Amino acid sequence: MFKNYLKIAWRNLMRHKGYSALNIAGLTVGIAACLLIFIVLQYETSFNTQNKNYKKIYHIVTQSSRGNEVAYTPGITVPAVPALRTDFPGATIAALDMSYGSQLTIPAASGHADKKFIEDVGVVFIEPQYFDLFDSEWITGNKAVLAEPNMVVIDKSTAIKYFGDWKHAEGKFLKMDNLINLKVAGVIEDAVSNSDFPFKVLVSYVTLKNYPNDYNYSDEWESVRCLVHR
Protein backbone atom coordinates (compact mmCIF):
# COMPACT_ATOMS: atom_id res chain seq x y z
CA MET A 1 0.00 0.00 0.00
CA PHE A 2 2.69 2.46 1.04
CA LYS A 3 4.68 1.60 -2.08
CA ASN A 4 1.70 2.49 -4.24
CA TYR A 5 1.33 5.84 -2.49
CA LEU A 6 4.95 6.59 -3.24
CA LYS A 7 4.47 5.74 -6.92
CA ILE A 8 1.40 7.99 -7.18
CA ALA A 9 3.21 10.84 -5.42
CA TRP A 10 6.20 10.48 -7.73
CA ARG A 11 4.01 10.52 -10.84
CA ASN A 12 2.24 13.65 -9.67
CA LEU A 13 5.56 15.32 -9.02
CA MET A 14 6.81 14.47 -12.51
CA ARG A 15 3.53 15.54 -14.13
CA HIS A 16 3.60 18.98 -12.46
CA LYS A 17 7.32 19.69 -12.16
CA GLY A 18 7.13 23.46 -11.91
CA TYR A 19 4.33 23.47 -9.34
CA SER A 20 6.05 20.71 -7.34
CA ALA A 21 9.38 22.49 -7.36
CA LEU A 22 7.73 25.67 -6.10
CA ASN A 23 6.01 23.81 -3.25
CA ILE A 24 9.15 21.90 -2.28
CA ALA A 25 11.22 25.10 -2.32
CA GLY A 26 8.65 26.87 -0.13
CA LEU A 27 8.57 23.96 2.30
CA THR A 28 12.38 23.89 2.46
CA VAL A 29 12.62 27.62 3.15
CA GLY A 30 9.90 27.36 5.81
CA ILE A 31 11.65 24.50 7.62
CA ALA A 32 15.02 26.29 7.42
CA ALA A 33 13.49 29.49 8.81
CA CYS A 34 11.87 27.60 11.69
CA LEU A 35 15.17 25.88 12.53
CA LEU A 36 17.05 29.19 12.41
CA ILE A 37 14.51 30.90 14.68
CA PHE A 38 14.67 27.96 17.09
CA ILE A 39 18.48 28.10 17.23
CA VAL A 40 18.51 31.87 17.82
CA LEU A 41 15.83 31.70 20.52
CA GLN A 42 17.55 28.76 22.21
CA TYR A 43 20.84 30.70 22.30
CA GLU A 44 19.32 33.97 23.49
CA THR A 45 17.42 32.29 26.32
CA SER A 46 20.48 30.29 27.41
CA PHE A 47 22.45 33.27 28.73
CA ASN A 48 23.93 32.63 32.19
CA THR A 49 22.09 29.32 32.52
CA GLN A 50 25.45 27.56 32.86
CA ASN A 51 25.47 28.81 36.45
CA LYS A 52 23.86 26.23 38.72
CA ASN A 53 21.99 28.91 40.69
CA TYR A 54 21.09 31.13 37.75
CA LYS A 55 17.39 31.22 38.70
CA LYS A 56 18.32 32.84 42.02
CA ILE A 57 20.63 35.52 40.61
CA TYR A 58 19.34 39.06 40.20
CA HIS A 59 20.89 42.16 38.65
CA ILE A 60 19.97 45.24 40.67
CA VAL A 61 19.37 48.43 38.68
CA THR A 62 18.28 52.00 39.41
CA GLN A 63 14.87 53.24 38.32
CA SER A 64 14.44 56.94 37.66
CA SER A 65 11.34 58.84 36.61
CA ARG A 66 10.94 62.07 34.73
CA GLY A 67 7.33 63.00 34.11
CA ASN A 68 5.67 59.98 32.56
CA GLU A 69 8.96 58.47 31.42
CA VAL A 70 10.67 55.74 33.39
CA ALA A 71 14.33 54.86 32.77
CA TYR A 72 16.62 52.19 34.19
CA THR A 73 20.34 52.49 34.85
CA PRO A 74 22.33 49.21 35.01
CA GLY A 75 23.72 49.88 38.46
CA ILE A 76 23.06 51.34 41.90
CA THR A 77 24.68 53.89 44.16
CA VAL A 78 27.90 52.79 45.87
CA PRO A 79 26.68 53.22 49.49
CA ALA A 80 23.75 50.94 48.69
CA VAL A 81 26.11 47.94 48.63
CA PRO A 82 26.92 47.92 52.38
CA ALA A 83 23.34 48.99 53.10
CA LEU A 84 21.98 45.96 51.24
CA ARG A 85 24.42 43.68 53.01
CA THR A 86 23.16 45.01 56.33
CA ASP A 87 19.47 44.78 55.42
CA PHE A 88 19.74 41.40 53.66
CA PRO A 89 22.42 39.40 55.50
CA GLY A 90 21.25 36.17 53.86
CA ALA A 91 21.96 37.45 50.34
CA THR A 92 25.25 37.08 48.51
CA ILE A 93 26.11 40.44 46.96
CA ALA A 94 28.90 41.37 44.57
CA ALA A 95 29.74 44.82 43.22
CA LEU A 96 31.65 45.40 39.99
CA ASP A 97 32.72 48.31 37.84
CA MET A 98 33.62 48.14 34.17
CA SER A 99 36.61 49.90 32.66
CA TYR A 100 36.39 50.56 28.93
CA GLY A 101 39.41 51.17 26.74
CA SER A 102 42.01 50.43 29.39
CA GLN A 103 45.62 49.96 28.42
CA LEU A 104 47.45 46.97 29.89
CA THR A 105 51.23 47.08 29.74
CA ILE A 106 53.37 43.99 30.26
CA PRO A 107 56.93 44.98 31.24
CA ALA A 108 59.47 43.37 28.96
CA ALA A 109 62.82 41.91 29.83
CA SER A 110 65.87 44.15 29.66
CA GLY A 111 66.63 45.27 26.14
CA HIS A 112 63.11 44.63 24.82
CA ALA A 113 60.10 46.89 24.39
CA ASP A 114 57.09 46.64 26.68
CA LYS A 115 53.97 44.97 25.32
CA LYS A 116 50.90 47.22 25.31
CA PHE A 117 47.31 46.11 24.79
CA ILE A 118 44.16 48.22 24.60
CA GLU A 119 41.17 46.32 25.97
CA ASP A 120 37.96 48.02 24.85
CA VAL A 121 35.84 45.59 26.88
CA GLY A 122 36.40 42.82 29.40
CA VAL A 123 38.30 44.77 32.07
CA VAL A 124 36.47 45.00 35.39
CA PHE A 125 37.03 45.90 39.01
CA ILE A 126 35.29 43.15 40.92
CA GLU A 127 34.65 41.78 44.39
CA PRO A 128 35.59 38.18 45.24
CA GLN A 129 31.92 37.47 46.10
CA TYR A 130 31.26 37.48 42.36
CA PHE A 131 32.57 33.91 42.25
CA ASP A 132 30.02 32.86 44.87
CA LEU A 133 27.35 33.83 42.35
CA PHE A 134 28.79 32.79 39.02
CA ASP A 135 30.48 29.49 38.31
CA SER A 136 34.02 29.85 36.97
CA GLU A 137 36.76 27.27 36.60
CA TRP A 138 39.96 28.34 38.30
CA ILE A 139 43.09 27.06 36.59
CA THR A 140 45.37 28.67 39.16
CA GLY A 141 44.61 30.77 42.24
CA ASN A 142 41.23 31.25 43.92
CA LYS A 143 38.72 34.04 44.63
CA ALA A 144 40.43 35.01 47.90
CA VAL A 145 43.21 36.78 46.00
CA LEU A 146 40.72 39.47 44.92
CA ALA A 147 40.28 40.60 48.51
CA GLU A 148 43.70 42.26 48.35
CA PRO A 149 44.59 45.51 46.53
CA ASN A 150 46.58 45.53 43.29
CA MET A 151 45.68 41.96 42.42
CA VAL A 152 44.38 40.82 39.06
CA VAL A 153 42.96 37.60 37.66
CA ILE A 154 42.96 37.02 33.90
CA ASP A 155 41.30 34.45 31.70
CA LYS A 156 43.26 31.79 29.86
CA SER A 157 43.22 33.35 26.38
CA THR A 158 44.32 36.72 27.78
CA ALA A 159 47.13 35.03 29.73
CA ILE A 160 48.35 33.44 26.51
CA LYS A 161 48.09 36.77 24.65
CA TYR A 162 50.04 38.64 27.34
CA PHE A 163 52.63 36.07 28.36
CA GLY A 164 52.76 33.50 25.55
CA ASP A 165 51.72 30.66 27.86
CA TRP A 166 49.10 30.76 30.62
CA LYS A 167 51.42 28.67 32.80
CA HIS A 168 53.82 31.62 32.94
CA ALA A 169 51.20 34.19 33.95
CA GLU A 170 50.75 33.72 37.70
CA GLY A 171 53.11 35.88 39.71
CA LYS A 172 53.89 38.21 36.80
CA PHE A 173 53.14 41.94 36.84
CA LEU A 174 51.35 44.29 34.50
CA LYS A 175 50.44 47.97 34.59
CA MET A 176 46.93 49.27 33.98
CA ASP A 177 46.52 52.66 32.27
CA ASN A 178 50.15 53.54 33.11
CA LEU A 179 48.89 53.98 36.64
CA ILE A 180 48.25 50.79 38.62
CA ASN A 181 50.81 48.04 39.12
CA LEU A 182 48.98 44.73 39.29
CA LYS A 183 50.13 41.25 40.21
CA VAL A 184 48.61 38.33 38.34
CA ALA A 185 47.25 36.18 41.15
CA GLY A 186 45.16 33.69 39.19
CA VAL A 187 44.00 32.39 35.83
CA ILE A 188 40.46 31.28 35.01
CA GLU A 189 38.91 29.56 32.02
CA ASP A 190 37.45 31.82 29.35
CA ALA A 191 33.82 32.83 29.81
CA VAL A 192 31.33 30.98 27.62
CA SER A 193 29.86 32.88 24.68
CA ASN A 194 26.37 32.97 26.18
CA SER A 195 27.39 34.97 29.23
CA ASP A 196 26.44 38.53 30.13
CA PHE A 197 29.80 38.85 31.89
CA PRO A 198 32.58 37.98 29.41
CA PHE A 199 35.33 39.30 31.67
CA LYS A 200 38.97 38.93 30.66
CA VAL A 201 40.87 41.06 33.17
CA LEU A 202 39.46 41.07 36.71
CA VAL A 203 41.05 43.58 39.06
CA SER A 204 40.32 43.49 42.79
CA TYR A 205 37.55 45.95 43.62
CA VAL A 206 39.43 47.34 46.58
CA THR A 207 42.03 48.63 44.09
CA LEU A 208 39.41 50.89 42.55
CA LYS A 209 38.87 52.61 45.88
CA ASN A 210 42.53 53.63 45.93
CA TYR A 211 42.18 55.54 42.63
CA PRO A 212 38.87 57.38 42.99
CA ASN A 213 39.77 60.39 40.83
CA ASP A 214 41.21 58.34 37.99
CA TYR A 215 38.18 56.05 37.66
CA ASN A 216 35.44 58.40 38.90
CA TYR A 217 34.80 56.31 41.98
CA SER A 218 32.68 57.97 44.63
CA ASP A 219 30.96 56.72 47.76
CA GLU A 220 28.25 59.35 47.46
CA TRP A 221 24.66 58.25 47.00
CA GLU A 222 24.57 59.89 43.56
CA SER A 223 27.25 57.58 42.17
CA VAL A 224 26.24 54.43 40.30
CA ARG A 225 27.93 51.05 40.09
CA CYS A 226 26.85 47.69 38.76
CA LEU A 227 25.67 45.11 41.27
CA VAL A 228 24.50 41.52 41.17
CA HIS A 229 23.13 39.47 44.03
CA ARG A 230 21.50 36.20 44.97
Rank of each mutant, 00 (worst) to 15 (best):
Y43H: 12
G30P: 03
L27Q: 06
G18P: 04
L22N: 05
N12Q: 11
S20H: 00
Q42D: 15
L22K: 10
I31N: 03
L36T: 08
A32Q: 05
C34G: 10
S20T: 03
G26Q: 03
L27C: 13
A25T: 14
Q42P: 07
S20Q: 00
M14I: 06
F38T: 09
W10C: 12
Y19K: 15
I24M: 00
L6I: 14
W10P: 05
L6E: 12
L13G: 08
A32Y: 04
A25R: 06
G26E: 02
N23G: 13
Q42S: 15
Y5F: 14
L27D: 02
R11V: 10
L22I: 13
L35W: 09
G18W: 09
M14E: 03
C34P: 01
A33Y: 08
H16R: 12
R15H: 05
K17W: 02
N23R: 15
N23E: 06
L36Q: 10
R11A: 10
Y43W: 14
I31R: 03
L6F: 11
I39F: 10
G26H: 03
Y5V: 13
Q42Y: 13
W10L: 15
L6V: 14
Y19P: 04
I37L: 09
A32H: 02
G18F: 11
A9P: 01
V40P: 02
G30K: 05
I39M: 11
Y43C: 07
I31V: 15
L27P: 03
G30R: 04
Y19R: 15
I8S: 02
K17I: 06
I31L: 12
A21H: 05
T28D: 04
G18V: 14
L13P: 00
Y5I: 13
A21W: 08
R11I: 11
V29K: 01
Q42K: 14
R15N: 07
M14W: 01
V40D: 08
Q42W: 12
N23P: 01
G26R: 02
G26C: 04
L13N: 01
V29S: 05
F38G: 07
R11P: 04
N23L: 15
C34E: 07
I24Q: 00
L27M: 15
Q42N: 15
G26A: 06
N12T: 09
T28C: 07
R15A: 07
L41Q: 14
I31W: 03
L6Y: 10
Y43P: 07
G30I: 07
R15I: 04
A9K: 02
A21Y: 06
L35I: 11
N23F: 13
L13R: 05
S20I: 00
H16T: 04
G18C: 07
R15F: 02
G30T: 11
I39K: 09
R11K: 10
